[in-house]
């Protein structure tokens, strides 16, 4: 899909090597557009396992069978403990979990509040969180807009964040979540300023 869209939607990716260097990690991504899922195809880590809400399994009838066969995880169809157990199993099998910690697409373009699940998994598994920053996909398809706005999308892997660095803090997964969210906020603010 990215190949066919390239003339109108060129995608650049910085620090792509970080995805290859951190297999079986927890890849988190800010969520600006429905395109973000397809943009994951621009990076080199192939053993991805998305952790998503229930509706894509229900409404994306064309993709849902592929999502099921790829072992994507429906985070709303099981109790939280079972979702966590399945995620940990996927990590042990070598998959990289993909989680959008905002839980849904931004409606304003602003970075939303983060949920803590991805960082709880990092603490449980000892695996690093690998932040992927997406710039500009919000402006390509703004919510409630009817037009497609061709423009360059920039993606960038930030340095991996390790759970051991937060082990001494109270509620370490929350400290890790706040740290990673601040990374996003700083990078997005710098982008807006420039």
């Amino acid at each position: 899909m990215l190949f066919w869209l390239h003339p109108w939607l060129p995608v650049s990716l910085r620090n792509d090597d970080l995805a290859v260097q951190h297999p079986a990690s927890i890849l988190v991504c800010n969520h600006q557009s429905f395109l973000d899922i397809y943009l994951l195809g621009a990076q080199q880590q192939s053993n991805l396992c998305l952790v998503t809400k229930h509706w894509p399994f229900h409404l994306l009838f064309f993709f849902a069978p592929a999502m099921r066969s790829a072992g994507y995880i429906d985070a709303e169809n099981l109790p939280a403990e079972e979702v966590e157990a399945v995620c940990l199993q996927r990590l042990r099998e070598g998959a990289t979990l993909v989680i959008f910690p905002e839980g849904h697409r931004t409606r304003t373009g602003a970075l939303g509040r983060f949920h803590v699940g991805a960082f709880h998994l990092a603490m449980q598994s000892g695996r690093p969180v690998l932040p992927l920053l997406v710039h500009n996909s919000f402006n390509v398809f703004p919510p409630h807009g009817k037009l497609f706005h061709p423009m360059r999308i920039r993606m960038e892997f930030l340095q991996a964040v390790y759970p051991r660095d937060f082990a001494a803090t109270p509620l370490p997964h929350r400290a890790m979540m706040r740290y990673v969210r601040q990374l996003y906020a700083t990078q997005l603010a710098a982008e807006a300023y420039s």
Binding site: A80, H115, H120, P170, L171, R174
Partner: peptide, 17 residues
């Protein structure tokens, strides 16, 4: 308030403290 099940577990710890 938008707290999920993991948040609620943390909320208990926060209140205990």
């Amino acid at each position: 308030l938008g707290l999920d099940s993991l948040d609620i577990v943390d909320m208990v710890i926060v209140l205990e403290k």
